[in-house]
């Protein structure tokens, strides 16, 4: 499983990444986490508000820091 956090580096984007990483570690998931800061790639995903989270190529959340329950649901735990 591959999780991408899309965001150019604003405060919210960093928090989103921390949240995802912390939740994954807690759940013992082996999903890989990638941070995408390139504007072109963000735009290509069709995302207009950051931070956005993409799980296995699917945009799951845009414009907010995802909650723990949400993240756990994405990874199926």
């Amino acid at each position: 499983m591959n999780i991408k956090i899309l965001g150019p580096g604003c405060a919210k984007c960093k928090k989103a990444e921390e949240m995802v990483r912390a939740t994954l570690a807690e759940a013992g998931s082996d999903a890989t986490v990638e941070k995408v800061t390139d504007m072109m790639e963000i735009a290509r995903a069709g995302v207009m508000s950051t931070p956005a989270v993409v799980v296995d190529g699917k945009v799951k959340s845009v414009g907010k820091i995802p909650g723990k329950a949400e993240i756990l649901a994405w990874i199926g735990k």
């Binding site: 965001g7 604003c10 504007m39 735009a43 069709g46 995302v47 207009m48 508000s49 950051t50 414009g63």
Partner: peptide, 15 residues
Amino acid sequence: TPFCSCSAVPLFMGF
């Protein structure tokens, strides 16, 4: 509409 200047670029492109 919620807007943060940090996402002005993807928003511009999306529009």
